[in-house]
């Protein structure tokens, strides 16, 4: 009797199918999702509201927190623009040209995904330090990367690069060369072909890739903390401040920053998704 009721209830939200295992697979999915993702997320949001909104606002408006948020957002924004520009170049070269070593370059693009962030952090720091392979040429010219905001931007654009390339590359591969040939035969200049044909078609993908790179950069920790120097008010990032607050047992302060960061990254992702959706429907381009 209960199993028949269960079946009736299931039928109210699920279409009939001859395949087995719906209850088991969905049940396990929901159980795991709740335990691993939703429960901890709820705990964090509730904790930040624990002391009321006044305490929450107080925790995120101290000068040190405000400075950390400014440094993080500013750096992530610059880094995602940088990743977008050279990411587009690399995606273009990989999608359009065949050259010796293309596959190796293509595989290397995912290095920032595969390389542990702590390793990337100490490698970049050593490279750009005063006596490092690159730092020894940059420092005499007054270009300081390590322990400055430029270092934060550098590390963030390192981790953001694959997001841009992997979003744009498949779209550039899919654009039919006939469109370019048609434009050329109708007398379009190279610049016109790029700005009227290629750019509109690949722009939604570029926006998506940059948004992903931005979200990753804003939350990045491992690759940034070594090169940043972590001076409060100057080169301290939001993620590090959360760790510092947790070490001081200031859980309310830590979760306030965390919720602010969570909220921001969700808003950015939502806004850019909406923008992308709008662009897509306007241009009628699939990505």
């Amino acid at each position: 009797m209960p199993s028949r009721k269960l079946k009736q209830w299931t039928r109210s939200f699920k279409q009939a199918s001859p395949l087995p295992g719906f209850g088991l697979s969905l049940g396990y999915t929901l159980f795991f999702l709740t335990g691993i993702v939703l429960l901890p997320l709820a705990a964090t949001v509730l904790r930040s509201l624990h002391g009321g909104s006044a305490e929450f606002l107080h925790a995120i408006s101290t000068p040190r927190v405000a400075a950390a948020c400014r440094v993080t957002l500013e750096s992530a924004l610059i880094a995602s623009v940088l990743s977008a520009s050279y990411g587009f170049l690399i995606a273009w070269v990989l999608a359009r040209y065949d050259f010796p070593g293309r596959r190796i370059v293509d595989a290397l693009i995912d290095l920032p995904f595969a390389l542990p962030t702590a390793v990337a952090g100490i490698a970049l720091t050593t490279l750009y330090a005063q006596n490092g392979w690159l730092g020894r040429y940059l420092e005499p010219h007054g270009i300081h990367i390590v322990f400055t905001q430029a270092g934060i931007v550098l590390a963030m654009s390192f981790v953001g690069l694959p997001f841009v390339v992997r979003s744009v590359q498949p779209v550039l591969e899919e654009i039919d060369p006939a469109m370019e040939e048609a434009a050329e035969s109708l007398g379009a200049s190279n610049w016109q072909i790029f700005s009227r044909v290629l750019a509109p078609a690949s722009f939604p993908a570029l926006v998506t890739g940059s948004a992903l790179a931005f979200a990753r950069a804003a939350g990045e920790y491992g690759s940034v903390i070594f090169i940043a120097g972590n001076m409060p008010m100057k080169t301290e990032i939001g993620a590090l401040l959360i760790v510092t607050k947790l070490e001081e047992y200031d859980n309310v302060g830590a979760s306030a920053i965390a919720v602010a960061m969570l909220g921001l990254s969700f808003v950015v992702m939502l806004a850019l998704n909406l923008l992308q959706w709008k662009l897509q429907s306007r241009n009628g381009v699939r990505s």
Partner: peptide, 17 residues
């Protein structure tokens, strides 16, 4: 969701639980 959450925030969420 985990793709959009900073790793540090992820760790902190478990501290809260």
């Amino acid at each position: 969701i985990p793709l959009a959450v900073s790793p540090v925030v992820a760790g902190m969420m478990y501290v809260e639980v």
